[in-house]
Amino acid sequence: MAAGKEIRSKIKSVQNTQKITRAMQMVSTSKMRKTQERMRSARPYADNIRRVMAHLAQVNQSSKNIIPFLRNPEKIERAGIILITSDKGLCGGLNANAIKVFLEHIRQLQQNSVEVEVCALGQKGLVAANRLKLMVSGSAVALGDVPKMEQIIGPLSAMLQGFHDGKLDAVYVVYTHFVNTMKQQATVEQLLPLTERDLKLKNEMPWDYIYEPSEIEVLDELVRRYIESVVYQCLADNMASEQASRMVAMKAATDNAGSAINNLRLSYNKSRQASITKELAEIVAGSAAV
């Protein structure tokens, strides 16, 4: 009966694993709902600031060259990449995909002999960047489940200041976009220089504002806030993706554990049946010999 006992303990252990994965699935299901709400609640600010900035950029075509954040370098020599990942693992291919996209983007940049520096938001990305010996100019880990603006302002400021002072010619962000519960897409987006997408206006408004204190100061600060809000939005997006991805991964793990238990139980029953048959055969053979 040794084999039977072994299988029984194996079943027990798979059952315990299944309990864990099922609990994690349920936790991430409820967290996902909350992270999606947060993603939506950050939208009014992002929409409003984008509208204001687009309008400002349009009436200020002439000042493009004097405002550091609106400059558009002809040649990119140094680029910054903000890599957003999760802090914890066990969420399917989420971080692996994001890092793959990130590496692909770096490879493209390096082909054009662009130097790269990284700002890592999230533990997994930081570990990956350090392992690849990339230059990390700022990082934030242990971000929790609620994205907080003050957590990202510090690490971001290094990048923004770099672009402002002309040390960086472009800034990109890599994160996982939440399409729906089943689909999350690792994406690269260009933050700086600002793209057409940022500056497009639905309807033209030809008047100019009164500025206080000054046009340059306002625009400078506004672009900074805009980038911060875009990154915040990306972070919220990434957290929703993380929970969705974890939920799906844990559901798959729970299902797999279920089928593994079924298989084990089948072989357990088979071996039990075999030993009973064998014993019976021995008894019958013994009585026949007498």
């Binding site: 204001v52 400002l56 008047w207 100019d208 504002y209 009164i210 500025y211 206080e212 204190p213 100061e217 306002v218 600060e221």
Partner: peptide, 19 residues
Amino acid sequence: TASDGEIGIYPNHIPLICK
């Protein structure tokens, strides 16, 4: 509270942007 002091805003104000 604007950067240069408190400002009161009433309807039909002209376009303004301030810190």
